[in-house]
Simulated scan of single mutants.
Amino acid sequence: MTRSVQANAIAILAEDEPHPLEAYNENGSSDYVLICEHAGRRIPRRYGDMGLSEEDLQRHIAWDIGAKDVALELSTLLDAPLFTQVYSRLVCDCNRRPDVADFAPTRSEDTVISANLDLNEEERKARADAIFWPFHNAVTAALDARAAAGRRTILVTVHSFTPVFLGNSRPWEIGVLFNRDNVLSPALAEWLKMNTAYCVGINQPYSVGDDTDYAIPIHGEQRGLPCVEIEIRNDLIRTAPAAREWGKVLARALRETAVKLG
């Protein structure tokens, strides 16, 4: 799905603020294409600190800690294109449709996001036009180009999750999330169970759905692509070296899984 972006009376991003998309290795030779929608925690200057402390803006509520470092390692080792999003999901969640409430959350975990209270439709649309659609339109264009060239595409999105959520501990170290895909995801989960000592969650601690996700349903399932969302517990990837080690394991897992897909 591609949406044209119209000039909006509300200027979300100043002219000198970065485009929401950062693309890496766009000409990579791999069958894999990587997306990291919650890679960044940048806040447009228009919103200041969104009513939050600097500590809050470094928490998981603002971004997926460690996910970008894992994705970058995967991009290098797999020679795969990677598309990351630089703005915080508190401004707009690029893994939610613009018409759902969590697109601009008023509460994340136990924290009220005061800057998102009482948003009107004009403001929500302006955020979508400034951040969401430019990011996803670029991903759409890249996938369209691969399809036109007859290239095989296997879609992987990379995320992280907290070890404790609202006081409840999460035992999983990695989650393999999927909905309609019944090829790539089960194969990857089986590989991880057979070849690592990780506690692997199947659709844990989240699941993929049309109302709770965007990239997998739209970029993957609607195109009929093998697709999977990978979630890694963020206490295991908080440092760049730790994230790179996870990237190495996942690169091997994805390479060997791709071979099994035929």
Rank of each mutant, 00 (worst) to 15 (best):
S207P: 04
L90Y: 06
V208H: 00
C199Y: 09
Y214R: 04
D210P: 02
T239N: 12
F103V: 07
G201I: 02
T157L: 03
H136W: 10
A71Q: 03
R3T: 12
E122S: 13
E55T: 13
M50V: 09
A7H: 14
G247I: 01
V156L: 09
A11F: 03
V70G: 01
T162S: 11
N234Y: 06
N120D: 15
A189H: 09
I216E: 03
T257L: 11
A9V: 07
R238F: 14
A115M: 02
D93C: 05
I202N: 09
A149I: 07
E37S: 11
L34I: 09
L72I: 11
A187V: 08
E17Q: 14
H60L: 11
R3H: 14
D49N: 14
T106Q: 15
A189F: 06
A101F: 09
A115P: 03
L261S: 09
P98V: 03
M1Q: 08
A258F: 01
V176I: 15
G40C: 08
V100T: 14
R151Y: 08
E109V: 06
N120M: 04
V200N: 01
I230E: 04
A215K: 00
P205Q: 04
T212S: 14
V70K: 01
L166E: 14
L166Q: 14
E73L: 10
F132K: 00
I131F: 07
H136N: 08
P81L: 03
V249P: 01
E221N: 09
R180V: 09
Q85T: 05
D102H: 10
A242C: 12
E229P: 06
A145D: 12
L192E: 04
E190V: 06
E123L: 05
T140D: 13
I61R: 02
R170F: 12
N116S: 10
D118Y: 12
A9H: 11
G262E: 15
G262W: 14
L155G: 03
L117I: 15
S114P: 13
D16P: 13
A130Q: 05
K68P: 02
L57S: 10
I113S: 08
A253E: 06
G40V: 05
R223K: 06
T239K: 07
D210E: 15
L52Q: 05
T111F: 09
V259R: 13
D213C: 13
R151H: 13
A215Q: 01
R233M: 01
F132R: 00
R42K: 15
Q222V: 07
V100G: 12
D49C: 08
T2W: 11
Q85V: 05
L78F: 02
W133R: 11
P18W: 06
A149Q: 13
N195V: 08
A145K: 12
K193D: 14
L155A: 02
R146F: 07
L119D: 04
F132Y: 12
D79F: 10
G66L: 07
P217I: 03
A67F: 04
N8R: 12
D210Q: 11
V259C: 08
V208G: 01
L166F: 10
G150M: 09
S160R: 00
L166H: 13
H219T: 02
E17G: 07
